[in-house]
Computed example of a mutant assay.
Amino acid sequence: MSLVNLAHVCSHLQNASKARLGLTSIPVSKLHVNLMLGLQREGFLSSVTLGGTTPPKPFLLQPTTSPEELETMADTLADEPWHAYPTLPESQDGRKAPPSPLGEERVFDVHVPLNPARRRLWLGLKYWNNEPVLRKMKLISKPTRRIWLTSEELGKITRTRQAGFVKGLTTPGECMFVTTDRGILEARECVERRLGGMALCRIA
């Protein structure tokens, strides 16, 4: 786990948000992928797409199904739940099966370079009222000093109290990510699961 590269990613995302960029890319690694997916779950990023040196196509960054279609699919499955199971493309007598009421499955081809060094992780940044959602992203553990926290200390931090060298989460919407043996989780989720780990970064 390279915290040096993570420090570059934190400063890059912070500068990209200040520059009002809609799309940016970072190098691919397991740490970066898991952390960016955590940021997307918490609502700081709009999309996380694996690609090459060129940006992905716009339709890959948008949801493939509209909310109206999702609501129609939910109503159909509530009335006829057997449609959730896949059907054979052809019936036994050779005739084609009728179209599914849930619609056709959409499959998109994404070009990912075979060379891992040419792969990039493309991130969609979010804004609200002309202000970036991700304003600050700061590294907590440093390459020369890694900070490990227990679940009790994380509980103090989530309740706006300081624990050791780490200050509490006082800003509304502020999050802190911790790497644990269950993966990279947000601090409040670690408190719920009673897990401790190494503090990675805090985002506000």
Rank of each mutant, 00 (worst) to 15 (best):
K167D: 12
S66I: 00
E90K: 13
L6P: 05
P56Y: 06
L200T: 05
G124H: 03
R194Y: 07
T87P: 03
G22S: 11
T144V: 11
I147P: 02
L195A: 05
Y85A: 12
L195F: 09
L39F: 08
P89H: 07
L114D: 14
G38Y: 00
E153K: 10
L45K: 02
P98A: 11
G38I: 00
T65P: 00
T87W: 15
L114N: 13
K96A: 14
P58L: 10
F177Y: 14
P132T: 00
V107G: 02
W148M: 10
K57A: 13
L61S: 09
P67M: 03
P89M: 07
L154V: 05
A187P: 02
G103A: 03
E80D: 13
K138R: 14
G22R: 10
V48Q: 03
L139F: 06
L45E: 03
T171N: 12
L35C: 06
G196A: 08
P101V: 03
T170F: 07
G43M: 01
H83L: 10
F59D: 15
N15Q: 13
H12V: 07
S66D: 04
L185E: 11
A117C: 11
D93C: 07
A78L: 10
H83C: 08
L35T: 09
T64G: 12
L123F: 00
L200M: 06
I140G: 01
P132W: 00
G52A: 01
K136Y: 10
M73E: 10
V107K: 09
W128K: 13
T64Y: 11
R182H: 14
N34H: 14
L185G: 08
V166G: 02
K136I: 09
M137T: 04
E152Q: 14
R106G: 03
K30D: 14
E152S: 12
K136R: 14
D93S: 11
P116Q: 04
L195Y: 08
A97P: 01
E42Y: 12
L134N: 04
L39C: 09
L77I: 10
Q62T: 11
M198W: 04
L200K: 06
P63T: 08
T160P: 00
R159M: 11
L134P: 04
E42T: 09
L3K: 05
N34S: 15
L114W: 07
L195G: 01
L61D: 02
L50Q: 04
P99N: 14
E192H: 12
